[in-house]
Nucleic acid binder design. Structure first.
Length: 183
DNA sequence: AGGATGATATCC
DNA sequence: GATATCATCCTC
């Protein structure tokens, strides 16, 4: 397992999103190592993407999204669940990739088939906002000889308000994987 | 179809 | 300071 370098995240957001499929999200906390395989993601392209939180410019909330790539953007949604994103592209773009579903690999007891649930299972909360994903206990890694996957491209979830941006196929998942949040 | 539940942005 | 809104999930 090889930790992904900063350079990986600084690439084009769509490319990073697609490449993240099949990689492993690893979180060590209180001596427990939790590992999940990323099976579903969404790309949020930046200030011009009306479905992205960054579409209204830099605020206290979105400053992480506008910062350096390879950092976690975690926020509370609907008062009860957290969602985790990884910031992409060079600083100032406001782009990120939302992690939507994981396949449980190690120490994941509860369901991981959705952005809110996977954060619960990985024990990720808002204190992880701004965390560097190149740290020693929170990072994404690739296996040496990854098994080839078939990718499905479709529309994002919960962004009907975003006009033409709601129709763009910026959600990617591994075909036939049983842990996808929605068809 | 609706409720839980809180941070955020945008208005006065 | 008030309120409308929300990249969700579960129960009915």
């Amino acid at each position: 397992m090889q930790k992904l370098p900063r350079k990986f995240y600084s690439q084009n957001t769509i490319l990073v999103a697609q490449e993240l499929l099949g990689k492993f999200l690893i979180n060590k906390k209180n001596g427990i190592i939790r590992i999940g395989k990323i099976v579903e993601v969404e790309a949020y392209l930046g200030a011009h993407d009306l479905a992205a939180h960054s579409c209204r410019g830099i605020t206290k909330r979105t400053q992480i999204m506008y910062g350096d790539p390879g950092y976690a953007y975690v926020y509370l949604i609907y008062g009860m669940y957290h969602c985790m994103n990884i910031v992409t592209e060079p600083s100032g773009q406001g782009s990120a990739v939302l992690i939507r579903a994981l396949e449980p690999i190690k120490h994941l007891e509860t369901r991981t088939t959705g952005p809110g649930l996977l954060c619960q299972a990985m024990s990720i909360d808002k204190t992880y906002n701004g965390q560097d994903l190149l740290s020693n206990d929170f990072y994404v890694a690739a296996q040496k000889d990854p098994t080839p996957i078939t990718m499905v491209k479709t529309t994002r979830v919960g962004v009907d308000y975003a006009g033409i941006w709601a129709k763009k196929k910026l959600r990617f998942y591994i075909k036939n994987n049983p842990y996808i949040s929605r068809k």
